[in-house]
Write a protein that binds this DNA or RNA. Structure first.
Length: 271
DNA sequence: AGGAAAACCTGCGTGC
DNA sequence: TGCACGCAGGTTTTCC
């Protein structure tokens, strides 16, 4: 489901409600998501307080004193906060019960999500070791990304979705940022001028920030912790608009497949 | 190097 | 009504 903006919106929704609360018990309704769900959550975390929630790429990192609970939401992961006695909904797989009668419930229809407790520094863990730069950080800039482009022979859309290069940009924001930058998704990344790469870097940051500010993109089942929707889907220019007229030039939006994923673009506005 | 395909899983829309 | 098929915000693995 969620790309960087959606995960960030979830983080911002959860953080004020969980900060300072201590974990008490854990309810399981399922043994396995993408990987087996750790059975030692309660044993290792009970009595510890959640001191904050960070995000790295599309992962949420719940900070429990000397341990981090890393959680990836896959395609359809959602959180909500309810009283612990609330019955489990369909596809609600885990409940983390905190002090003050708060239960963090995780629902994941397709069960592509995964989680684990990480005790070592995050950068040494296999999930994070090879991760690329955060797109909203100053380390992601024209010089650094142009250098990455020159080293690779893949299409630009493939590169910007490569989490070992830059994290958090998935299928929606790849398509939307390339359209806004006027760059064809199948262009060889090394063939694009530094000026155009720089334009895309600036636009990608602006698109991600705008999406966060309007609560992310609610397509199909993305919702906030409080059940509200995000509105960035109303700003889509190309994603999901196959055969509909481009808002700029009226030509039909094209759909192709790149590395197994659908790509939407305007053939006349993007080159 | 990198691409294609399959794997993990459920639900929904479409077409016959 | 039912069934087959394709498709969906992600990531990993395996095989050319």
């Amino acid at each position: 489901m969620p790309e960087l903006p959606e995960v960030e919106v979830i983080r911002q929704g959860l953080r004020p409600k969980l900060r300072g609360k201590s974990l008490q018990t854990v309810d399981y309704r399922c043994a396995k998501l993408r990987y087996p769900i750790p059975t030692y959550l309660e044993e290792q975390l009970s009595g510890l307080s959640c001191q904050g929630i960070k995000r790295r790429g599309k992962y949420l990192l719940f900070n429990f004193e000397n341990k981090q609970l890393a959680w990836h939401l896959g395609m359809t992961g959602q959180f909500r906060l309810v009283p612990p006695q609330t019955p489990f909904a369909k596809h609600e797989h885990i409940g983390l019960n905190f002090s003050d009668n708060i239960s963090l419930r995780y629902k994941d229809t397709r069960r592509f999500g995964y989680l684990d407790i990480i005790k070592e520094p995050i950068n040494t863990h296999p999930w994070f070791k090879k991760m690329g730069v955060e797109p909203l950080s100053d380390d992601f800039n024209t010089d650094s990304f142009y250098a990455q482009c020159q080293k690779r022979r893949v299409a630009i859309k493939t590169l910007i979705m490569d989490a070992n290069t830059v994290v958090g940009i998935g299928n929606i924001y790849a398509a939307e940022s390339l359209f806004r930058a006027g760059i064809h998704p199948a262009a060889a990344c090394a063939s694009i001028s530094k000026q155009r790469i720089g334009r895309w870097v600036d636009i990608s940051k602006a698109v991600l920030e705008e999406a966060i500010s309007v609560g992310g993109s609610s397509i199909s089942d993305f919702i906030h912790v409080d059940g509200k929707q995000g509105y960035f889907s109303h700003q889509f220019k190309v994603y999901g608009r196959h055969q509909q007229p481009c808002y700029t030039c009226q030509q039909p939006i094209q759909k192709i497949t790149q590395t197994g994923r659908s790509t939407f673009f305007c053939a006349s506005c993007q080159s």
